[in-house]
């Protein structure tokens, strides 16, 4: 008889960490929590956009653009939730909002979905997890990663490669053949969209979106790199979910921005649970996952310790 593969969820159920009734309750979807949060999201974006406008003729435009950038890069968190179809009960809304987020941050939604599937299947396994961020060997490598320069180089290379109709060896493993044309089309549409935006700005002579969108995105991305590192970097590169993933307890504003994805261990245990139920799932699973009480900074302190120890060993 064909057997189901062992997943963190099947393990949690088999080991009694989570009951079937609890699972059913946590998985329930609803449109309302996300619509309420999106309304606040729009207000927040309006506020940060206003800050840039008010600071237009002064040096204060730079911190204002940074704040806008921190919000913009968190569209990744929302897009990530949409990849899992857990933001809205209405399935097409997940697709629509995910696409909008992807266009905001240069991340084609379909490609991200397939890449992210293998991240969940092979979390933290070298050569198999396409999203694995290696533990930096030196503080120089750590700083380079946080600069987001390698990230942007990879993103642009990736999108242009797909637009040319090519996939890397790694991508061929996780994108089904029947979806290759769609992935190529998505990349061309996205580049076409950015090309159109730039062309319209050139024709009208109004370059405002560079200041409201492009520069903030570049200024904000290091913050997202800082946060993405806290999810798995420095945790053991093993298949065991209770070891390879880190939940970071952070304050309410950060939880709002990241759509509760700081509860990363819980998310990897049960990816079908929507963002609004993750804090409750945390209460059930917190004894079985790695929890960093010190938040994002606590996670980075642990990463610094490991880099420091490795550097001393190598010296």
């Amino acid at each position: 008889m064909a057997q189901a593969i062992v997943t963190p969820l099947t393990q949690a159920l088999a080991e009694g960490k989570l009951s079937r009734e609890e699972l059913k309750e946590f998985m329930q979807r609803s449109d309302a929590p996300a619509l309420r949060r999106l309304a606040l999201w729009a207000l927040m974006l309006a506020a940060t956009t206003t800050l840039i406008t008010l600071a237009w003729d002064s040096w204060l435009i730079w911190p204002a653009m940074f704040v806008q950038g921190v919000v913009l890069v968190h569209h990744f968190s929302l897009q990530h939730e949409c990849v899992h179809y857990t933001v809205f009960r209405t399935r097409w809304l997940n697709e629509l909002v995910g696409q909008v987020c992807g266009y905001t941050i240069l991340l084609p939604h379909r490609f991200f979905r397939y890449e992210h599937c293998d991240h969940h299947t092979y979390t933290q396994l070298h050569g198999e997890d396409p999203e694995l961020i290696p533990l930096p060997k030196t503080f120089g490598q750590y700083a380079l990663y946080l600069s987001a320069l390698p990230y942007w180089r990879n993103k642009f290379t990736e999108v242009f490669r797909h637009a040319r109709g090519h996939l890397s060896e790694a991508e061929l493993k996780f994108i089904p053949k029947e979806e290759h044309p769609a992935v190529f089309r998505d990349a061309r549409l996205m580049l076409g969209f950015y090309g159109l935006v730039i062309t319209v700005m050139a024709l009208t002579g109004w370059w405002g979106l560079v200041w409201y969108w492009f520069i903030p995105l570049i200024l904000g991305e290091p913050v997202m790199r800082f946060i993405r590192m806290t999810e798995h970097v420095g945790r053991p590169t093993v298949a065991q979910m209770s070891d390879n993933t880190r939940t970071s307890l952070v304050s309410a504003p950060w939880r709002f921005l990241c759509w509760n994805m700081n509860y990363h261990g819980e998310h990897h245990y049960v990816a079908s649970v929507p963002f609004h139920a993750l804090p409750r799932l945390h209460e059930v699973l917190k004894e079985h996952i790695h929890v960093e009480e010190g938040g994002y900074l606590g996670a980075h302190r642990e990463i610094w310790r490991q880099i420091h120890a490795n550097t001393r060993r190598g010296a």
């Binding site: 189901a4 593969i5 997943t7 969820l9 099947t10 159920l13 699972l23 998985m27 979807r29 990849v83 899992h84 179809y85 857990t86 009960r89 399935r91 599937c117 969940h120 299947t121 049960v270 990816a271 079908s272």
Partner: peptide, 19 residues
Amino acid sequence: ADLCDGYFDGHVIECPLHQ
């Protein structure tokens, strides 16, 4: 993965691993 651990809504079953 086992669909019986997935989210079920109306007539749609969602896989618990990749949705």
